[in-house]
Amino acid sequence: MNVSVATVVRLLVLVLAVVVLQLAVVGQISLFYANADLLPLVALSIGLLAGPVAGATVGFLLGLVADMALLQTLGVTSLLLIGVGYLAGRYRELRDATHKLVPPIGGLVATLAYAAAFSLIQFLLGVESPVSPLVIREIVVGALLNALLIIPVFAAVRAFLRADLIDDLRPRRRPVTRLRVTT
């Protein structure tokens, strides 16, 4: 990823826009008793497109801004989104991240892992009410919604950062081979 002042500004704008969109719109839409969550999806997208350092940094900023805006305990969301962005970036470095199924499967896995880790932290910090088994349904349905939502989110993030990306993650076409017909 080319890092310039313009890149940093673009990333900050992206972080702010995503948090506002999540809190004001996406978080208020409830489908099948669950909500989609843009935050892990954007951290994942940045990790897949720009590598672990950018993924972790954007994850940290997303978490920080979200916790600030919601007056929540600072640091919890950041810590988890750093993991999502970093691991997505490492996947890009170690495996083929150009396959079309990588974003949806990644979105599903990342959201499940993020929600599970968030739940674990909440249990460690103390939960003062009984927990319904339906919490699992909410996490799973939310992850499925995110697996669908990652497709436009990934495309939008890629379009937004196209100028800064060194090698764009498009599925590579096979070279056309000419067949020589011999009679």
């Binding site: 809190l23 004001a24 978080g27 208020q28 969550d37 979200a66 929600a115 739940s119 919490v135």
Partner: peptide, 15 residues
Amino acid sequence: RVIGRSPTVWYSAIT
């Protein structure tokens, strides 16, 4: 007017 909502199941809060 409600202008924000916590995205996780663990924080039930609105802004």
